[in-house]
Design a protein around this nucleic acid. Structure first.
Length: 218
DNA sequence: TGCCAGGCCCTCTTTAGGGCCTT
């Protein structure tokens, strides 16, 4: 029986789709012994959420009280959940060839990489960061916390600090950023490569970066 | 019980420091 719940089957994983992921964890860094307690994944295809995955997982360590308060995920909730390895094995199959996205990707990529190394399936794709993209595209917004962006940009959202809810909010943020770029630069489509170029450009060089990308041969 | 990290950005900077952001 699968460890996680996914809303729809996804028989193919074409390039150009996005897998937006979010971890809830026992702490801030796997290097300090923190482990994942929950993962949520949202598959985006052509601006539409076509699939989702979520699962609690047993981290094998105590969840600090303040994190239980923060996320609502308690020791008793994960006690009988599948272990992290079992869940992450499913997740690797689920995210397959999709482009990866996370809000503050530096955080989620650390936990993802730590688990993928244990499965001997190291990540081979760069992860897009919706936090960095938001800072580039909406520099006038004072706070780029996911919860603040949900409120400021009026994005759909449910319960903050649960994995699938936050992954869904980040997915809506990514779609909002794509629509904003399409309108601002009169584009038909904003590709993964363009988003990666924008993410890697400094804020001051954003306009030049986009102009050069638009002039580049396809 | 509380703490633990690290990459990015901005500025009173660049031979640095502090805030943001993730749990």
């Amino acid at each position: 029986m699968p460890a996680g719940n996914n809303a729809h089957s996804s028989p193919s994983h074409p390039q150009g789709t996005f897998a937006v992921i979010d971890f809830e964890t026992t702490g801030i860094s796997p290097e300090c012994g923190a482990r994942p307690t929950e993962i949520g994944v949202v598959i985006l295809e052509d601006g539409v959420i076509v699939d989702t995955y979520e699962s609690l997982m047993n981290p094998g360590v105590h969840i600090p009280y303040f994190i239980q308060e923060l996320t609502g995920i308690t020791d008793s909730m994960v006690r009988h959940a599948p272990d992290v390895g079992t869940v992450m094995q499913e997740v690797t199959e689920f995210i397959a060839s999709h482009r990866l996205v996370a809000h503050n990707a530096a955080f989620d990529s650390k936990f993802l990489d730590a688990e993928l190394i244990k499965l001997k399936r190291p990540r081979d794709k760069e992860m897009l960061c919706s936090l960095m993209l938001s800072r580039r595209v909406f520099p006038e917004i004072p706070s780029h916390k996911l919860s603040s962006l949900v409120e400021t940009l009026r994005l759909p959202s449910t319960k903050h600090h649960r994995a699938l809810a936050d992954a869904t909010a980040a997915a809506h943020l990514l779609m909002h950023i794509q629509r904003e770029l399409e309108q601002r630069f009169d584009l038909d489509h904003v590709s993964h490569e363009m988003l990666l170029s924008i993410q890697q450009a400094t804020r001051a060089k954003l306009e030049k970066c986009i102009a050069e990308f638009m002039k580049a041969p396809k």
